[in-house]
């Protein structure tokens, strides 16, 4: 094989590769748009009026997630399934956002941490790598961390809206998350950087809880009895 032939073969490979990436980019753009729509729906829980109808907001978000499912279904057709990690960078960001949104919805509904299986079900992906398009564990964890900072915001706003019970529950939840993350041996990667931000969320929520308890606003029975 001559040098020219070899290079034209590689050129062919590279241009095919670029076409695939172009296709993926298009689908991911649509997916990002849907993610933004869901975020807009959920953002209204920070409004004082939004606290009353959280369930309806969640329902609306869940409806939008079915759009996400079909869009991810489309994304799956754009590349060979065993080359997931070759193009991972393209959808990594949006998948983290979607995990965050799914986790946020589940938290608002049931005040519990979404499992990976649940996220996979909501997004229409597989759980295991072997079975096809899946959610990478690091992306799942990154999504959870995004939710943590969203919850610290929610704690502040729920006080403004006059809901003094919620910050305490959020505080318990975040503390649990924090101790969970402490179990992980993270490398010096983007996930680790994001995890480093968690302590500020924890701190913020603890400040909110402190403010509430010194004013006797926290509705914990022991806190009132001690005074």
């Amino acid at each position: 094989m001559s040098v020219t032939e070899m290079f034209s073969y590689i050129q062919g490979f590279l241009s095919a590769d670029q076409d695939v990436r172009e296709d993926i980019r298009k689908v991911v753009q649509v997916l990002e748009q849907t993610a933004r729509e869901i975020l807009t729906v959920l953002q209204s829980v920070h409004q004082p009026t939004g606290f009353k109808d959280i369930p309806s907001k969640c329902l609306k978000a869940r409806e939008l997630f079915s759009t996400v499912q079909s869009q991810i279904g489309e994304l799956k057709t754009k590349f060979p399934v065993e080359q997931y990690y070759r193009f991972h960078e393209h959808w990594r960001f949006v998948l983290q956002r979607l995990t965050f949104l799914a986790a946020f919805v589940v938290y608002l509904e049931s005040e519990s941490l979404v499992t990976r299986e649940e996220v996979a079900k909501i997004l229409g992906t597989e759980v295991d790598r072997e079975k096809g398009f899946h959610l990478d564990i690091e992306d799942y964890l990154a999504g959870i961390l995004i939710m943590a900072s969203e919850l610290s915001r929610l704690a502040v706003n729920s006080v403004t809206a006059g809901d003094y019970g919620r910050p305490l529950r959020i505080s318990n939840f975040i503390n649990e998350l924090d101790s969970g993350f402490r179990l992980l041996n993270l490398k010096n990667d983007p996930l680790r950087k994001r995890y480093d931000g968690l302590k500020y969320d924890v701190k913020k929520i603890e400040e909110v809880v402190y403010d509430l308890s010194i004013r006797g606003l926290a509705k914990e029975p022991e806190a009132g009895g001690d005074k």
């Binding site: 941490l113 649990e176 101790s179 969970g180 179990l183 041996n185 993270l186 924890v202 809880v209």
Partner: peptide
């Protein structure tokens, strides 16, 4: 509430689902 790190080995037997899930993640990541 404050010593959240010790929640995992809480003497009250409070091993939450979250911590259990993270133990699985720990193994997978390692």
């Amino acid at each position: 509430r404050t010593e959240s790190a010790q929640r995992a080995e809480d003497p009250l037997g409070h091993t939450s689902q979250v911590v259990a899930a993270f133990r699985v993640f720990q193994q997978e990541l390692d």
